[in-house]
Design a protein around this nucleic acid. Sequence first.
DNA 1: TTGTACGCGTTATCAC
DNA 2: GTGATAACGCGTACAA
Lengths: 340, 340
Amino acid sequence: MADLLSVAKLAGVSRATAARAFSSPDLVRPATRERVLNAAQQLAFRPNKIAQQLRSQATQMIGVMVPSLDNPVFAEQLQAMEVAARAAGYSLIVTTSEYSPSREGDIVEEMLRQRVDGLVLTVAEADNSAVLVKLSLETTPCLLVYNPPGNSGFPSIGVDNRAASADATRHLITLGHERIGMVAGPLLQSDRARQRFDGYCHAMDEAGLIAHPLVEMARHTQADLKSLTPALQGPDALSAVVCTNDLLAISLMGELQRAGFNVPSDLSVMGFDGIALGKHLYPSLCTIEQPRADIGRTAVHTLLAMIRGEECTPDPLPHALRKGESVGTPTSRKSTLSTS
Amino acid sequence: MADLLSVAKLAGVSRATAARAFSSPDLVRPATRERVLNAAQQLAFRPNKIAQQLRSQATQMIGVMVPSLDNPVFAEQLQAMEVAARAAGYSLIVTTSEYSPSREGDIVEEMLRQRVDGLVLTVAEADNSAVLVKLSLETTPCLLVYNPPGNSGFPSIGVDNRAASADATRHLITLGHERIGMVAGPLLQSDRARQRFDGYCHAMDEAGLIAHPLVEMARHTQADLKSLTPALQGPDALSAVVCTNDLLAISLMGELQRAGFNVPSDLSVMGFDGIALGKHLYPSLCTIEQPRADIGRTAVHTLLAMIRGEECTPDPLPHALRKGESVGTPTSRKSTLSTS
DNA sequence: TTGTACGCGTTATCAC
DNA sequence: GTGATAACGCGTACAA
């Protein structure tokens, strides 16, 4: 590929002048500029970003790490980030960690070697993350997304999970539900899920209701009905559940219906995240909408501010309750317990 | 950040030796190597990829452009690509085009300036794409995904859309359906959708059935029932439809059910793509499964082969029919036409 | 086995 | 206005 020197030669000027024709066009006489631009055209010259980056010690690249793109929450956030970054002249290097700490480490190391100007990460556990302590010793700006801003020391973008989860629970309480449970992925292995459980407990307490023990599913994004069945039987059967994420809620609804339960009359199901698809289902998913696009945009803008050297302590973004057909008023105790 | 020279100084060797300690460890005496590595450790030295890239004229970076990450099809493909790329020591620069030709152009230009080693693109229209003619004049390897391998001249990874769509249609025919329609996004503005319509027509012809005119929805991934309603009324009412993608099918199912139709007894709905979520819905989505993960992996491996200079003409990947509850046998003409 | 020296393509600081 | 020249950080042919 043609470089600046060949362009300069063809135009009959020095490399410096050729360079100026691009970076500061007004510093060069119009006629000369023309010649350079023409030469560049003829040679199909394309500025080499690598060289620019080496020279300027800045890459205009942002390193992004999310757990998985199979979850629309992250994909939708990434979509927004990409648009915002591009608009600001930045590119995204995208990686997935699968929540694996060792992968997290490798990925961040790789991105630092690539000299990204900043990092946007969603880690498994912000408060107890090897990769974050490593990063705290570096100078590369780093921003968390979705991870609650705990004592990790890094600024974080996201909603107030505890408050949002409490709101979800209160919505059910307002409708008259009293026996409300929470369904989550394995071991509460995510700091977000834990906060959401907190919020649920808080709202229950506040209403004088007893919080039930967490119903743990084997997988993070796929419900298995068996784990829930016990809580659906007997005189204390739940009339509503809050799931810690939408994929879990959607698959739970499917399982329930397939087993002969009606949603919401047998069980109201509430999600958390607000992925786009939830609106189009039947019954449509009642959920907490995290402003995913806004989160993505804000993450990029905040990181750019940090790169410029500004100090940032972003506020939580507002969540919203999205009503949906998957939640209804509690019906009188159903007489027949149909279990598969 | 510490550079190789400071490491060399601290270790009491020349820069060349320090460099070798990393790139060809066996060319340097173990004792010396130790000293270098120790020095590197102390200085928190991190190799500068930019410099390596400039020097080696290779970036180990793949440029990826998809229409949108809001569609799980692309997100899931990307997930697989990222894993495969990382395993091979490559990074991904990810961009979204929103199907806009001008954005496509900007993005590709930007990636070429970044000197990516290769490109993986999904464009709106492969046969008539400005960005592809531009790329045909370049030497950077380029591979299409999902776009049918038409006369664009670029190798392409994906399923045989025409055959897959015919299979979907035949599945309905086998179940006894005769009045089968196809539902698509706007204007068939996607080459894939057009091929899928072709396949549908072919299967209908083959069975001696008449292909219905395409039912066009205003949006690519969201059904509006009104456009379909006419085809659902009267003596010739459809008993089944094939949608050109899963998001369309899922939202259509939701709309139908919300309007009082039963799926599949009033209308069987078939999707196309096989996004993960479809399995967990109720009714579960009957669809054509594109091997999205395999497509992503194969795309990366094929591109790497091209980067190595090998000639590639990949075969279409096999699709599969995924049965689901959204499709049933046709019922006798329903007596009451319930329209909202 | 180790050191010297050059080039990768730009940009910025000087002179002219 | 324009041209020479020195970095930016690294890899490697060549010489020692």
